[in-house]
Design a protein around this nucleic acid. Sequence first.
DNA 1: GATGAATGAGTGTTCATTCAT
DNA 2: AATGAATGAACACTCATTCAT
Lengths: 219, 219, 219, 219
Amino acid sequence: MNMESEKETKKRLLECAMKEFSEKGYMKASLRNICKEAGVTTGALYFFFKDKEDLFGNLVAEPVMGLNKIIEDHFTEEINATNKLSGSDISVAALAKAEGFDDDMAIARLVIKYLFEYKEAFNLILTKSQGSVYENLPDQMVEKVEAHYTNMYVAMKGYKSKKELTKEDRFIIHWMSHDQIDIFIHIVTHCKNARDGEKQMKNMIAYMVGGWFGVINNK
Amino acid sequence: MNMESEKETKKRLLECAMKEFSEKGYMKASLRNICKEAGVTTGALYFFFKDKEDLFGNLVAEPVMGLNKIIEDHFTEEINATNKLSGSDISVAALAKAEGFDDDMAIARLVIKYLFEYKEAFNLILTKSQGSVYENLPDQMVEKVEAHYTNMYVAMKGYKSKKELTKEDRFIIHWMSHDQIDIFIHIVTHCKNARDGEKQMKNMIAYMVGGWFGVINNK
Amino acid sequence: MNMESEKETKKRLLECAMKEFSEKGYMKASLRNICKEAGVTTGALYFFFKDKEDLFGNLVAEPVMGLNKIIEDHFTEEINATNKLSGSDISVAALAKAEGFDDDMAIARLVIKYLFEYKEAFNLILTKSQGSVYENLPDQMVEKVEAHYTNMYVAMKGYKSKKELTKEDRFIIHWMSHDQIDIFIHIVTHCKNARDGEKQMKNMIAYMVGGWFGVINNK
Amino acid sequence: MNMESEKETKKRLLECAMKEFSEKGYMKASLRNICKEAGVTTGALYFFFKDKEDLFGNLVAEPVMGLNKIIEDHFTEEINATNKLSGSDISVAALAKAEGFDDDMAIARLVIKYLFEYKEAFNLILTKSQGSVYENLPDQMVEKVEAHYTNMYVAMKGYKSKKELTKEDRFIIHWMSHDQIDIFIHIVTHCKNARDGEKQMKNMIAYMVGGWFGVINNK
DNA sequence: GATGAATGAGTGTTCATTCAT
DNA sequence: AATGAATGAACACTCATTCAT
């Protein structure tokens, strides 16, 4: 068990952990099983990882941070830009329409590419993390998108400020933000690779853009 | 513990189970806790319920079946109707456009009303059932809707038969079916009552209808 | 395992626990071992006791409370009595000398009798409780005695109030309080029964009284 | 980690061990923690020390041996001297009274000075050694003192030989020996330095001497 | 109807220790 | 002189479930 392993034990543990977590979910996954599968004792696992949460974290932390960075880099600067324009002129609406969604497609492509780079990890977080600290990740991402979408919505509706938003406005904005994230989740959990993902995304963007106009023009 | 309880034990167990499952989710819920809260021993629970799954089932089975009936009553007969029409004439598209969504709003109203009648139960199934046999209920409902939506999609696209459906078509149909169900879930988990739910639903239907046309007219 | 046990399992567990704790001390005692010895599974133990601490508590809590009551009943009322006399007259010193120690012998007899009633338990607390919540019990008892002894010391020294106490006074009072408790501990851990304990106690009281006068008359 | 450490690793390990043992006691102390604190791996510890017991021993063995030597140098020669005198004349009692306690004060001063020289170590042995081979050190020291005190007691009582000692005599001798050791323990655990220790000791010696006469003159 | 007792397998985690390099 | 890796046994504790009464 020396010649063959040589520092690969950790890798093996991570692989087996990925398998176990993927099959049973965070809570039902058994560290004993992971170790048995990896051919080591439980003590070995605790040499490499602090605890169950840490083991799971080693599988998903990096991808999550990378994704957060991508989203924040994109949306926060966009929010700043929009805020500077706020209250200015009619072209805001036009801009939102014309450029907003093109932009979205660009970022979406980026996100999808990233999601598939770490497909396994994101599948884990998105569908098997209940019980871990990552179980609310989708919600957290929705929150991040929501600020951006609120601005877009205000512009497209022709509101002069966020203060004009009704309770119904806020509800549908939340839904659309949720749905945007859900689209990404759906793609990464239903497509086998990034190319396929991007291909399907075209229709989904069309769906979402159609949805937006449906909402904006409603009543 | 005799005069006061008398056959109310089961009711009390169900109430406490609802509370425990809602707070901790199916897996983390402890039967011990439920019994302690209900003021009985674990043995009592096993007199009324076969096991943990059965206890959970008693909380949600009826609402689920009721919902299934509503959906099936509506969609299966519609599918039959559509199938008889299949391949016939241009009016199908018109019908889909004109009546399809009106119809959808009607059924949606029905569904929402029903969901809120058993709000607690549906919240349970929809957000706290991981680990139980109900964890895939949303997916199962998506499947049911999908057949109906496939027909609608075929009609609106002007296809002569389902055989013309591409892989991309099937993918977006699946997504839209999923999204339809998600709309219901979103409403029942985010609105406090049926009236509020119906109110928010108008925008969501607009979103969905907009999305459909976005997809149908895409490219 | 039914006919023979019949509600005696708890008793058997307590007996085995007493044995295990006495042999290995609180920390090194193994619940597994206790259960094995008692012929039940670990789950059974947890039916009767909340956790390790609770099991230990069941062995010693009652005796401890009883002892506390005896001590408090005796000393707190005596402190009240002394406080009412405070600052009054010379007879206080006389009283302390003449009656103080007689009184002590009376209470000592009471305490010793009680200690031997629960000999095993007190041996446990006094010598094997490290790691449990009872590990500081002797210190706590010292504190209780200390208030009483401070009053006695003040009276015997002829001080008008506690404010006259020097740092050295306080130190020796603490030591003598500690020693008083230690006498009880010594007796219960070195004598086989109450009769023997009382017998030895006479000399120990003589030692303590002699010590007091040695201190009071010092310098 | 080379330039700076260079053979200071052992010293660092000992320092960290002292801290850990002092905080948690022998049993609860974690070698892992000690090594982490010292900035080395557990393997390093095992290069310098055989095992946990050996590590603890390295902190306390030398002081313990030193103390033993002081006590033995003093008491054993005294016992020899007394033995030679045994059965001789009345002056023995006088000697015991007059010189015995003066002598005790001298040796006590020596002991206290030594205890404070290795204050940390003795605090460790005296209050944190449960679970290690040193846990009975106080008892061992009591044994050593006991032989000496037996002789003193015989002399003061005017017995012609040890054979006259009753069970009660032996009991109170054991207690007084125990108390003598306890006085040292109390001082080293309650005083901050040797000067303070010696100061408080005067009263304690007065207490002990008073106690002795109380016992000798009893009944 | 319900209790009280008990099972047995499982959980994550910690520990002192070992040893090839 | 020290590391990094790994062992293996132990730990307290929790769980759903069973069943005689």
